[in-house]
């Protein structure tokens, strides 16, 4: 295990580790892009909902995020394909199938729909969480203090409330990493994106157990590393948390 000797895939006639390391970078590209995108959408959306709380904007955003959360992600992916690729022809139907990371990044249009699909659930849960944690923070005493000392509402919102709400968002990010990585299986299968997820799906179809166990192992490893990165991000956002000796 520690030598990454994960066995031999007889169905593919190649060592499991070789197959996985060919595919892993492409999945990491997809995961990275979609998580970044999800955070960039969900955090402003949550703030917007707090600023415009109990207005039509707030209710509409809550409604949309509930539906996005409740819809199976393969349905979202296929509807995106149907409307934006087949009907409107804005984006290609199939994801980039180049064998290298550079080749995939060279075709950004093909990446749009898979990234959106994988980000949909994350946006939904993160924006809901962002809204409720911002609401929590806004009722606390230090916000009133900040207002009382004459800080502008913009400064209160971004300087005081956001930094504190970010802490719980990073906790959620750490906890959601397994489901984001898992979502890659469905998303890659929908778009025929040649990453780890599609490899897992094909292994399941072919009853290729060594390969299945190998991809599961590497996915778990990715989760552990991701959770570690989230822990490090804590220290970046919250100066009260310091690791190691002071």
């Amino acid at each position: 295990m520690l030598h990454f000797n994960l066995g031999y895939s007889y169905k593919n006639n190649a060592p499991v580790s070789t197959l996985i390391f060919q595919r892993l970078p492409k999945t990491l590209v997809l995961l990275g892009l979609s998580t970044t995108f999800a955070l960039l959408v969900a955090i402003p959306l949550g703030i917007l909902q707090v600023v415009k709380r109990n207005t039509i904007v707030d209710y509409a955003a809550t409604g949309v995020s509930f539906v996005l959360y409740a819809a199976p992600s393969f349905l979202i992916g296929l509807l995106l394909i149907l409307y934006f690729a087949v009907d409107l022809r804005w984006f290609p139907v199939a994801a980039p199938s180049a064998s290298t990371v550079g080749g995939i990044l060279a075709d950004p249009r093909g990446l749009v729909l898979p990234v959106l699909t994988l980000a949909a659930v994350t946006v939904a849960s993160f924006s809901r969480y962002m809204r409720s944690s911002m609401m929590d923070v806004m009722t606390q005493d230090f916000i009133r203090t900040a207002r009382a000392k004459g800080a502008s509402s913009r400064r209160v919102l971004y300087g005081h409330a956001l930094r504190n709400a970010m802490i719980s968002i990073i906790t959620l990010l750490g906890l959601s990493i397994p489901s984001i990585v898992g979502g890659a299986v469905v998303t890659e299968t929908v778009f025929n994106y040649p990453g780890m997820g599609l490899l897992t799906y094909n292994a399941a179809l072919n009853l290729d157990v060594p390969l299945l166990i190998g991809t599961t192992f590497v996915a778990s490893l990715a989760v552990v590393i991701g959770s570690f990165v989230a822990d490090v991000l804590y220290a970046v956002v919250d100066p009260r948390i310091r690791y190691g000796s002071r």
């Binding site: 397994p178 489901s179 990585v181 898992g182 979502g183 299986v185 469905v186 897992t200 799906y201 399941a204 009853l207 157990v209 299945l212 166990i213 991809t215 599961t216 996915a219 778990s220 989760v223 552990v224 959770s227």
Partner: peptide, 16 residues
Amino acid sequence: FLSVPYIFLLVTLTVI
């Protein structure tokens, strides 16, 4: 167990 993405576990178990 939490570090294993649940869908991988589900797929592996239902295949076996």
